[in-house]
Simulated scan of single mutants.
Amino acid sequence: MHDDSLLTIGAFAARARLSPKALRLYDRLGLLAPAHVDPATGYRWYRTEQVDRARLVVLLRQIEMPLARIADVLELPGWQAAEALTAYWAEVEDRRAVQGAVVAYLRDRLTGRTQTMKYEIRTVDVAEQVVLTERRGLTAAELPRWIPASLGRLEQAAEGCGGIAGPPYVVYHSEVTADDDGPVEACLPVNDARAAQLWLERQRTGAALRVEPAGRLAYTRITKAQVTHPLIESAFDAVERWTAEEGLTITGPCREVYFADWDASSATDEVCDVAFPVG
């Protein structure tokens, strides 16, 4: 085959600053298909105008964008691709903020230094609430996926239960670690107990209905970065210490109350109250 507009895989790799091995990988993933493949030898040929696409892949890999996500970005028009890149980088910065907070926590713990984080502890009186709930045994690794999914299901259910009456929260009835699996209970206050009961009878889902009694919570407010396990443990510890120092008694399991839009919040935005019922 002779076509002056085509480049051999070696020549194209040199122009694109990629190895032939990487080009073969990108071809398999649909990121950068050759313009022509010799049916007899399997040899790959590329067009000069594909160099820009190849260099874009290289640049996106330099910021550690996953290959599957690069494939999506490359199929978008320019302005949409730029928006997708912005969204990806915001996720990276949030992840790094979370990781940095965890590293600081672990550094203090490993060196035996006094925990440097300061928490302001407050109390609040909470009225009796009717709540829709889902309960599951989960390890720490399973929580980040289950919590938003469960609360999302409960929010949909609340439409048939008179609407949402308060912020969602998650109750930890037992230890949740890499090895211990709770159980954990996702809760959403609703306005109409009767409508909620009828909805449950019709739907026959895994949700349940119960009454959360009135009481007092001791809590501290934390950022999205601080929600990460094991960093969040220091917030729970701070509330427990404060409760003991104030001569109060913990009367129920600990919980996380989510009062902000998680997806719209940055790593430094306050999103959650870490709380214990006290008396």
Rank of each mutant, 00 (worst) to 15 (best):
L76E: 06
W79R: 07
V37I: 07
L31D: 11
A82V: 06
E91C: 05
Q99H: 05
M65C: 10
D94F: 03
E128S: 12
T116F: 02
R96F: 02
D108W: 09
G42A: 15
W89Q: 14
A104C: 03
R109T: 12
A35T: 05
D38S: 02
G112R: 04
V130W: 06
E49M: 02
L74N: 09
T111A: 12
G100I: 10
G78K: 04
T116S: 14
D52Q: 04
Q129N: 10
A81F: 00
E93Q: 13
V126P: 01
E75A: 05
E49K: 00
V103K: 15
L76H: 02
A127I: 13
V126N: 08
A82N: 02
E134H: 04
D72V: 08
A35Q: 05
R113F: 02
R122G: 05
V57I: 12
V103S: 06
G42S: 14
W45Q: 12
A127K: 09
V58T: 06
Y46H: 09
D52S: 10
V124P: 01
E91N: 01
L56T: 15
E134C: 03
V98L: 14
R55V: 12
A104N: 15
L32N: 01
T123E: 07
L60F: 01
G42M: 13
V131H: 01
V92F: 09
E75G: 13
V58A: 10
R47G: 09
Q129K: 07
V51E: 12
V131A: 14
R44I: 11
E128K: 05
R107A: 15
P77T: 09
L85P: 01
T114N: 14
A68P: 04
V130L: 08
R61S: 02
R69W: 03
A35V: 07
L67S: 01
I121Q: 02
A104W: 05
A81L: 07
R109L: 07
Q80L: 07
A101T: 10
V126K: 10
V51I: 15
V58I: 02
I70W: 00
R53V: 12
L56G: 09
G42F: 04
L74I: 15
A71Q: 14
R53G: 02
K118F: 08
E83N: 03
R107D: 15
I121T: 13
R95V: 12
Y105L: 06
G30D: 13
I121Y: 08
D94E: 11
G112F: 00
R53M: 03
V37Q: 01
G112E: 10
T41A: 03
L132C: 15
T114S: 11
A54E: 13
A68T: 13
L132F: 04
E75W: 00
R113Q: 14
P66K: 08
Y46W: 03
I121H: 01
R61W: 01
Q115I: 13
G30P: 11
L56R: 14
A40V: 13
A33P: 00
Q50V: 06
Y88D: 14
A82H: 05
L59G: 08
A97T: 15
G112Y: 05
A90R: 06
